[in-house]
């Protein structure tokens, strides 16, 4: 794979929440992201709905089109098939859950059009 995989998605990785609490990546819940963003002075949680999933430039990549936030800004990102996103109320999800499980040992659901993912934006932008 030509693109380095982020190490923090590996099962067992230790994640620090905004209040200092430590959790394993596989134990994170929707509330952990919401509460961390609530006490962050710079970051805000947005809801990003998956609008389209298309093939990427390389066979192991996909282009995901999101509708971001209340303004429904259209944003495309190209990621590896196994790249996990956190879906509200569901947890880690990727375009190829089998690959994510194989590479990261992280249990994943299949990311589908209509799923609402946790994303971040900056506070105070007007």
């Amino acid at each position: 794979s030509p693109v380095a995989l982020p190490p923090f998605f590996m099962r067992g990785s230790i994640i620090q929440l905004a209040d200092g609490e430590l959790k394993r990546v596989e134990d994170l819940k929707t509330e952990d992201f919401i509460q961390s963003a609530e006490i962050s002075s710079e970051l805000k949680i947005d809801s990003s709905t998956v609008e389209r999933i298309d093939n990427g430039q390389s066979p192991n990549a996909v282009v995901i089109q999101f509708s971001v936030g209340e303004l429904k800004a259209q944003v495309c990102v190209e990621v590896l098939l196994e790249y996990p996103f956190f879906v509200f109320g569901q947890g880690w999800s990727s375009c190829c859950p089998d690959r994510t499980t194989q590479l990261f040992e992280l249990s994943c659901a299949k990311l589908c059009v209509g799923d609402v993912c946790v994303s971040l934006t900056l506070r105070g932008l007007r």
């Binding site: 923090f8 996103f85 900056l122």
Partner: peptide, 19 residues
């Protein structure tokens, strides 16, 4: 053991003007 901040796990998508 490395510790990663929670915000590394979430994509930073285009800023919106909502608040």
């Amino acid at each position: 053991v490395p510790v990663f901040p929670w915000h590394s796990l979430v994509p930073f998508l285009a800023p919106t003007q909502s608040d």
